[in-house]
Write a protein that binds this DNA or RNA. Structure first.
Length: 279
DNA sequence: AATGACTCCTGTGCGC
DNA sequence: TGCGCACAGGAGTCAT
């Protein structure tokens, strides 16, 4: 489900609801998520005040007093339900109960998500975060940084951008949309892109993510904002899930065949062959 | 080192 | 209406 803009939206929602509160307890209904939740999870975080939040790629980090952090990944189908009901919604595996009597539920039907606790100073060396690529919206993420990540890669640019070691936080939707904005064919070998194309791609990644965050992310199936509302960036998609529809950048061009769908590394890719060039 | 296949799991939507 | 199958926003692990 969630890519960087959705995760950012979820984190902001959690921040509003949880920051400054004290975790009373964590109710764990299922331990067997992507990785088994540690048996002492609730015991370790109980009684601690929530003092801050951070996002790294598609991971949410919730900082607690006493140098402890909760790390959370939503997987494909995870979502956060704030002020969740006492009668659990289906697949609500973890509930954080705070000192104001409110409840923050982690719902994840497919159980591809995870939640764990670690010392805050160890965040960046945590095994799932170590080796993660640059944050695309950080000030130091430059076109040169991106160029460096793509250099000497023969794999397609689509596949390479999905690799979290190259750029953190991109997923299938925003990669398709960024490549469209940059006018780059998804099958282009990453290492063959010209400087100018990489500059366009760098700008496209930043613009599409920034706009999507402003829209509260994209709501397709599972994704709802923590407060229950929908994101609306899905209305701004130009190619994703638009197979057969007219390309928004080739209005009326007879040679345009519209948005095409191909499969790359087992994932759906949507693009306009005319607007995004031939290989 | 780099790449792609496989895997985890459930829900949904489609064709028949 | 019901059934079976393909597919879904992720990503670690393993084999090549």
């Amino acid at each position: 489900m969630p890519e960087l803009p959705e995760v950012e939206t979820v984190m902001r929602g959690m921040q509003i609801a949880l920051q400054g509160r004290v975790i009373q307890t964590a109710i764990i209904r299922r331990y067997d998520l992507r990785w088994r939740i540690s048996a002492d999870f609730s015991q370790r975080i109980s009684g601690r005040k929530v003092i801050g939040f951070r996002r790294r790629g598609k991971y949410i980090l919730m900082r607690l007093a006493g140098d402890l952090s909760v790390i959370l990944h939503l997987g494909m189908s995870g979502r956060i339900v704030l002020d969740s009901d006492k009668t659990p919604v289906p697949h609500e595996h973890v509930v954080l109960v705070t000192d104001d009597g409110k409840r923050c539920g982690f719902v994840d039907p497919r159980r591809f998500g995870m939640i764990d606790v670690l010392p805050t100073p160890m965040e960046d060396t945590y095994r799932l975060l170590a080796g993660m690529g640059p944050e695309p919206l950080d000030a130091d993420f430059s076109s040169a940084t991106l160029e460096n990540g793509l250099a000497r890669k023969n794999a397609s640019i689509k596949t390479v951008l999905l690799d979290q070691k190259i750029v953190a936080g991109l997923g299938n939707i925003y990669v398709c949309e960024a490549l469209f904005r940059a006018g780059i064919h998804p099958e282009t070998p990453a290492g063959t892109l010209k400087k100018k194309q990489i500059r366009l791609l760098h700008g496209a990644i930043q613009s599409v993510l920034t706009e999507a965050i402003a829209a509260g992310g994209s709501s397709l199936k599972d994704y709802v904002r923590p407060e229950g509302g929908l994101g609306y960036f899905q209305h701004a998609w130009k190619v994703y899930a638009r197979k057969g529809q007219a390309c928004p950048d080739c209005p009326g061009l007879p040679e345009c065949e519209g948005v095409q769908h191909i499969t790359q590394a087992g994932r759906s890719t949507f693009f306009c062959p005319l607007h995004q060039g031939k290989r």
